[in-house]
Nucleic acid binder design. Structure first.
Lengths: 198, 198, 198, 198
DNA sequence: AATGAATGAGACTTCATTCAT
DNA sequence: CATGAATGAAGTCTCATTCAT
């Protein structure tokens, strides 16, 4: 009995996801150029040929991974949009980010590898720039809501802190005092401290 | 008649530098894996073979580039060690760093590509970690000298800001308001603001 | 539809053999260092890349060729083990060896090139030494069975004669009187002559 | 004061010999293809360029080494020609050969490597064949002088024994009982034994 | 006579991609 | 839909040979 169209479509979707996430993890681990299609196929438990049935080239796969990445990131930060209190918003944002750094270091790796990576850059740049901008805008809104003096700059500063710490953590995972820095940052951005920036 | 030892030494030094800086620029531009020995030779205007007369492998060249990089960075930050006044020290440090970011973006690119890049990482990691540590310690000393409450954390925060901003600048050179952020940061770390951290 | 496992296995076996025997012949003809992967691929009628799908390096291929060689040699000399009469055993052994020398000169070439060749030697040495020992032991047993006075030395002498003649034959295939030497040797090692060694 | 023509010529001769013997040893040790001009120059303590002042190519050097080798071998076996008594001649020949095997294994290595070696073979073959023939003829003459039945075959047998043993010795220098085989061979070819071959 | 920097052809090897099944 | 054998371009590296000094 042949499978129904729905079943086939489901298989396709599932396999595509499988390839995508295998690629994502390997790209994060070994970089784009350092990952081979064979690696990806092996990790996904499929044949090399099948990967080309889903993605027409390695670059294509990269773009797809990139989009996936952004969608995932969006998902993570979606919840905070519904929070009303800006102080709470920042606190939860910090919580989310640090959980994210620790738990999903690979996202940061990808984010950085892709952005710095030659050949890959062109593809990825626009997306990340947009993404960064969105983040900056979001933060800016929060800071403006609070009434802080220079919300645009403050948001860029905050963003820099986050990405700088992530970078340092990735460089030296064993020894970077991530939890301590998180507490420190939360103090820097608690209600009392933020008041001083008005 | 053969060339004198001095002549030979000079040739070797000159060619080595030529190769080294060609490699440095290309690594910065296209990453380690994205740069071929052919690229480097072409940029240096020499044959592929000659590169191997000076560096026994691409990895060897990478290590040499790495060391060069650190030496260059050291040179840049050396002057501030002699400044006595910690407030001035920070101000000049910020000046130096921002000049550096703008002028020698390639250093940051290398610094990041090397550190994030798989396969390359092993070689470079120790060096960068050491270097980062040195930077953190230097900052910590300054903050402690001033009498700031949590010098270790503050130094890591400062470091994160710098590297985060550099990252954002590299991502979006055209639009990132580097000069504006520099002014902003200088205000954040001027004498008046630092006093509040005591 | 993908090929069945059996089909794939057969293809792999066939291609592997093809590469192996192409390599074997070329190694025998031009030596290990004198043979390129391109040569082998060309002789096998495949692409260079495919050779690496079957053997991970030229050295790996060498080892495989070596094993093949020994297996083939074993096959050749297996039958004589079942012969009871030691005099007949020697006669048939001589027959086999001389047929072998003439027919499969390449085996001897390999055997010698590999053993004498630097760099290659390390890999091959143990195998050939073992093999030689086995041969000596086998002969020794035969001579002892006959009751010859100094079986260990006689077996080494016999071995030396064989390999020396092979060497001379290879040096000068056109003019070396192989058949004549075979007859001569058979007389030297016939029952009557062997009796004198008791 | 410029050097006299004689002095210059002497320097040339000395340097040529230096290169030649450096090449000889390295070829013996690592084979022709395994030895680089750099190796040879380094061993001779001269520059690569100078080697080309004396030998126009690596192949040229090989041929020269080959000739040197034969001259050296000739020198070694010259003395026995003057011995009258054929029995003594054989005894001394065996002595000489075994001393030679043990002491100058490199000659045998070269002799074999060159003969079996691809590309090299063409050059070397004629010489070695001639040399071998000369040896066979010499032995044949001795055996004929003694009155042995089949001097041509006996001389080839003797030659095979020698080269076979050398081969086995080189394969397994540590364990091959060279001295023991020498004694054994001397008994096989002493007056008493030879008489039986008449 | 002597040097070693420089070249370039060609070796080994990897891997994205294609294709017969 | 699925496979992995097969290709070939391109990358790293070696080395005989040349040449300016």
């Amino acid at each position: 009995m042949p499978r129904t169209k729905e079943q086939l479509q489901e298989i396709r979707k599932k396999t595509e996801k499988l390839i995508l996430y295998s690629a994502l993890e390997l790209f994060a681990e070994k970089g784009f150029n350092g990952t081979t299609i064979s690696d990806i196929a092996a990790k996904a438990g499929i044949s090399k040929g099948l990967a080309y049935n889903y993605f027409s080239s390695k670059k294509d796969l990269l773009e797809a991974v990139c989009e996936t990445l952004l969608i995932e990131m969006d998902k993570i930060f979606k919840p905070i949009e519904q929070i009303e209190d800006p102080y709470l918003k920042i606190e939860i944002l910090i919580n989310l980010i640090f959980t994210q750094i620790e738990k999903e270091e690979k996202f940061w790796r990808l984010y950085m590898d892709f952005s710095l990576h030659p050949g890959v850059k062109e593809i990825v740049n626009k997306i990340t720039v947009d993404y960064l901008d969105t983040g900056f805008k979001l933060l800016e809104k929060i800071f403006r809501q609070i009434g802080i003096k220079n919300p645009a700059n403050e948001s860029k500063l905050f963003g820099a802190i986050i990405d700088g710490m992530s970078l340092h953590y990735i460089f030296n995972k064993e020894h970077y005092p991530l939890k301590q820095m998180k507490r420190f940052l939360k103090k820097k951005y608690n209600k009392e401290s933020l008041e001083k920036l008005k």
